[in-house]
């Protein structure tokens, strides 16, 4: 029962926190690592091709940030999830459980807003 309740607190905190941190990581471009698939290179942190080469040469080394954004959010969410799991149940009982779906839904809307530049071309 206790472990089940702890896992429930972890699961709810993890899902909610991830959704928030993912939007922050996306908006602030905070990737835990950057993958350059054509070079087979993974660098810690956020690295833009234009920082080290001419922007016109960017197609030679396309970068992937998605893995890094997700890892950033997952790391933060894991930490908060573990903290929530360790908290006494009475501390979290009053928290509305609907946050676990409302926050991700709002985060998805925020993602749409951050993606709007693609639709302005």
């Amino acid at each position: 029962m206790t472990s089940s309740a702890s896992f429930r607190r972890f699961a709810f905190a993890f899902g909610t926190t991830f959704a928030i941190l993912y939007v922050v990581a996306l908006a602030r471009d905070v990737a835990l690592f950057t993958v350059f698939p054509s070079l087979g290179v993974v660098l810690a942190g956020t690295h833009h091709t234009r920082d080290v080469a001419d922007p016109a040469m960017g197609f030679l080394a396309p970068a992937i940030y998605w893995y890094g954004w997700a890892a950033t959010a997952a790391l933060g969410a894991l930490m908060l999830g573990f903290v929530a799991a360790l908290l006494p149940g009475r501390w979290t009982r009053a928290i509305w459980r609907g946050w676990v779906w409302l926050v991700p839904a709002l985060s998805m809307i925020a993602c749409v807003y951050l993606t709007l530049p693609w639709f302005r071309f």
Binding site: A11, A74, P104, M108
Partner: peptide, 16 residues
């Protein structure tokens, strides 16, 4: 891009 973002958020919702 939205697919990537939504998929990541969905993955994190699986435990809940």
């Amino acid at each position: 891009d939205l697919k990537e973002h939504f998929a990541a958020i969905g993955l994190a919702l699986l435990p809940a």
